[in-house]
Amino acid sequence: MDTTWRTAVSATLHCLTGCAIGEVLGMVLATWWGWGGAASILLAVALAFFFGYLLTFSGVRRSGADVATAVRTAIAADTVSILVMELADNGFILAVPGAMDATLGDLLFWSSLAASLAASLAVAFAVTVPVNRWMIGRGLGHAAVHALHGHGDAGRDHAGQHGRHGHHH
């Protein structure tokens, strides 16, 4: 696998980790607070975008970018990944009978959340790795992270950069 594909895989896994954290947190909080279906989906999506962007933003800031550059890079790099992930995840949860009405004590809540996350992560990964590869090949998104490093092997740099802040893979 060439460096650009490795970078795309690493970037996608990193983004989707943040997305999954936000999704689970949003669904748990909304269910705990007794929110309805639409409100819980909105909270989960908002937190998925927040954490997905946050993990990329943090890594870009650590690599030496200023705040504005880090924000632009995170938005450019992760919007497609998070959007695909959220469409797949929430579509799956809405398709499971009773999943939106389940409570934190219900096995259905946890099993549908786990199944929807697994399915949507697989779909989002399959869709967004090629998108990230295309963007990196054009100097967009995560390619901007590597430009900040100034190193030759972008795939190794990206994996190393993400490895330094928590081994989320």
Rank of each mutant, 00 (worst) to 15 (best):
L117T: 12
V67W: 12
A99V: 05
A76C: 10
V80G: 07
T73V: 14
W110L: 06
M100T: 10
D66M: 10
A122D: 02
D101S: 15
T79A: 01
T69V: 13
G64W: 09
L94R: 11
F109D: 02
V129H: 02
I82G: 01
L108A: 09
A88P: 01
M100W: 09
V127A: 12
N90W: 00
T103A: 14
S112T: 07
A122F: 12
D106M: 07
L117C: 10
T103P: 09
F125C: 11
A88L: 00
L94G: 11
V123I: 13
T73C: 08
V84L: 07
M85W: 05
F92K: 06
G98N: 01
P130H: 02
T103C: 11
P130N: 05
V131F: 12
W110D: 03
T69I: 13
R72M: 13
L113P: 02
I75K: 12
G105V: 12
V71C: 06
A114W: 08
N90F: 00
A65S: 09
A124V: 02
A102N: 06
V123C: 04
A119R: 01
R72W: 11
W110P: 05
R72C: 10
A68R: 15
P130Q: 07
L83A: 15
G64C: 03
L87C: 11
D101M: 07
T103D: 12
D66N: 13
V96H: 00
F92M: 14
V123Y: 01
A114H: 03
A122Q: 07
V129M: 04
E86P: 01
L83P: 04
V96N: 00
A118R: 04
I93H: 04
S63I: 10
T69Y: 15
L117P: 00
A68S: 14
D78M: 03
T103I: 08
T73D: 07
L121S: 09
A76P: 06
L108N: 05
T69A: 14
F109C: 08
